[in-house]
Design a protein around this nucleic acid. Structure first.
Lengths: 128, 128
DNA sequence: AAGCTGTTCTATTATTAATAGAACAAGAAG
DNA sequence: CTTCTTGTTCTATTAATAATAGAACAGCTT
């Protein structure tokens, strides 16, 4: 698994880690049932603290993307890839809203915004 | 201007304020040259601190959405509505990426994601 | 028995968010 | 000229978050 952490990002590193794991699930390089490194091994590999990895894991567990099994390890949740609920859609819209507002100020058309999304989707598939 | 701050949001209130000002520019209810309330008046109106409004203003100034004129006041930047630069597009993509990744895990198709964007765009126009 | 698993506990350090009050310099308005 | 308002600056405090650190625990695997 290829994780790249930007030390000088405004995004906390535990979040960067969690987001990149989600990306791996999105692109299919991590599939439901796959195991993730232990908090210690991952921390050593990434040069960060065990507790930071743990925080990322719990963030992902709350989002139901991974499953933490006591004394066993961490696995991609069986429902890691699933159909969005209406609540999911609302949450995604809330997160997208400020970005779309900015895009509209920057005079991006609907088509241009859709192109951005397509480029991102391609990025998330090419890298398999 | 209608600003609604969610006290219990994980998004800092200075950011919520800034984002909602951007939304107003996006929907056209605030146009380049329009003046914004003074930091004191706005703070009193919203029930928050002067310094918090100031922080939102400086955040928006850095993004070139408003112009702070010494001893005069704050105005929507003449370039508040402008054509996106290539850097703008890259920044937007970086912000969109983790959300799109999550959308893909939730098995939203390209069309379904585009529908979300359309719904948001409508929201940002209807409210004029 | 040894090693590994996530968990829990206490602890420290640094940064950010938010508030508060006072004072300043400069423009506007009377 | 005086008064008010403007954004700015300064110091200060409080709370929360991020990140690190080390130790210990319970339970599974080998």
């Amino acid at each position: 698994m290829f994780i790249e952490i930007e030390a000088n990002s405004a995004v906390p590193i535990y979040l960067q880690l969690a987001q990149q794991i989600i990306e791996s699930v999105a692109k299919g390089s991590l599939k439901p049932g796959d195991s993730l490194p232990s908090v210690r091994a991952f921390a050593a590999d990434l040069g960060m603290n065990m507790h930071t990895v743990n925080k990322a894991y719990h963030y992902l567990e709350e989002k139901e993307f991974i499953q933490i099994v006591q004394k066993k390890g961490v696995f991609i949740h069986e429902n890691g890839v699933r159909k969005a609920s209406e609540l999911d859609r609302l949450r995604l819209k809330k997160e997208l809203r400020p970005i779309i507002a900015e895009a509209l100020c920057l005079q991006l058309s609907q088509a241009e915004i859709e192109l951005l999304i397509q480029e991102i989707s391609l990025d998330l598939k090419e890298e398999m």
